[in-house]
Design a protein around this nucleic acid. Sequence first.
DNA 1: ATAGGGTTAG
Length: 665
Amino acid sequence: MNGQSLVLSKGKQYKSLLKHYAATKALTKTTQLHALAITSGLLSPHLRSSLSLSYANCGHLKNARKLFDEMPQPTLFSYNMMLKTYAQHGFYLQTLNLFVEMVNLGKCRADNYTYPFVFKAVGEEKLVIFGGVVHARVLTGGFEKDSFVMNSLLTMYMNCGEKEEGRKIFDTMWEPNVVSWNSMISGYFKNGCSKEALGVFNKMMDDGLETDCATVVSVLPVCGFLKELEVGRRVYELVKEKGWGKEMMVRNALVDMFAKCGSMKEARFIFDGMVERDVVTWTSLINVCILNGDMRAALRLCLLMVLEGVRPNSVTLASLLSACGESKNLMDGRCLHGWATRQRLEYSVMVETSLIDMYAKCNRVDLSFLVFKNTSKKNTVPWNAILSGCIHNRLGKEAVKLFKEMLIEGMKPNAATLKSLLPAYAICADMQQATNMHSYLLRSGLVSNNEIGTAVVDIYSKCGSLESAHKIFNGIPNENKDIYLWSVMIAGYGGHGHGEIAVSLFKQMVRAGVKPNEVTFTSVLHACSHAGLVDEGLDLFKLMLRNHQISPQADHYTCIVDLLGRSGRLDEAYDIIKTMPFAPTHAVWGALLGACVIHENVELGELAAKWLFELEPENTGNYVLMAKIYSAVGRWKDAENIRHIVNEIGLRKAPAHSLIEVRNM
DNA sequence: ATAGGGTTAG
């Protein structure tokens, strides 16, 4: 054997070895062979290609790219493999960069394998403009009949939020297959068109088209969202008929669908019938408990999950943490924070966001900031969370400051950012800042968004400029005036003592065919009580009680007690409290006590105070008010006794809680 | 070698 043929046979041997290493993801062996190839001078372009592929499969992207770059003329296959590797590992921008390099430098023509990787990356990065350019290349390149290319193009548009474009691709497709149909279902659902998604599925069934596992996995979340239990059951029948019930994904989707449709029995039946359960199965069931408000059961399931050897992921923790926030359950929230740390999940964006949100909702925004400080700040979601956390704790100035920092960091605010931020300007009530923000919104074109428009009206009202608020209100077309906008405008006038205008706006709203809800009634009753429109308020309250779609809440009773109490009709106020269908809250008794202070009524004052001392024994304000009544009527001794209690509470109360180190949990 | 599916935070 001469030298030449020895090299060739060695090269062949190495190539087949690398094929094996790539399949078994043997990184160490790949590295060893790489070194051997260098030292023996056998590193040919062909071997580089095999080595690159092996590194790629082992997940060592750096070396894969290095060897790729060392190839004098990478083949189309090598390009495609590199693109695939980047796309599979979530390096979408690198995918697109390499694609541009490959096409623009004229190195290779893209083929039917290239485009799906590219469209995947475009869809994930939501670069729809770029996607359109690649779309054009697909057409000029004559790929419009390739089902893989066209399906990936369809999904790309759906992932970019362009459902109309996606639909167009589907409608003009040469031969839509089951993947195309499934993509339409999931695409519509992702874009908030659940009805259309269900329509696509029904059409598939009616036309007797081919369906598969992915079809049912796509349509089941739609059934759950729409609470279409009957359709969900039909899908379950289909699953049994086709024998897809062994698939974990199908079973998980069934558990979730039945749970969301409120059929715990069927959800449990599927769950219990599963021999193997993964983290998604458990998370789905945990979510069911959370939905039912049973945190203890949810935590018990966590324990069972761990005992079965299934580890939680960031979704599991995010669900549990957000439940703690909703129920102001700081204790469990902190334990879960510790669990997240031990599971090395605390630096996942989703967990960070839920932690920020949970602490803020538990009124511990100091801890939210501690978590936020350690986030990467490259994602808008944690920013939005800390902004809404500030708002929840009425830290308007801090929110505005954070927003400015966010802009400086180069973050792009989205609609959710502004929704979180805008109440800050209403809290600050600083006209200058509000005007600046308004012009920012006008420039960004976001004012046309209904929710944002409502927020602007609210800001101007809170800043005291009812004229500006009303001008914007009038500028919104009548058919776009929804209940939120009306409520804000009514509350604006009510808050500044213009009860008559508030009531007349309320009547206008009803005439315009917008049904008042609990919030509108609170606003208008509040307006009446501020302006002393006692009978007007009583009439509205009676109207509300007669309207059976609206259930009177504690807020409404507080308003009406305040209204009657301020005008001196204390006995009537107490009569109303006695008719309440649920236990009066501290706010209701507080309104009565406040009125008793104004009108120096000892008897009812003592009654209200008795309840208040029981409901919120630590609130010194109640004792002070009662002392005030005693002093006013000359019962100095009683007043003195109560002031004494206030001092005792003050001494007993711990000093302001110190910042607790979360990291030590 | 290439396309579609399950839990989820602001």
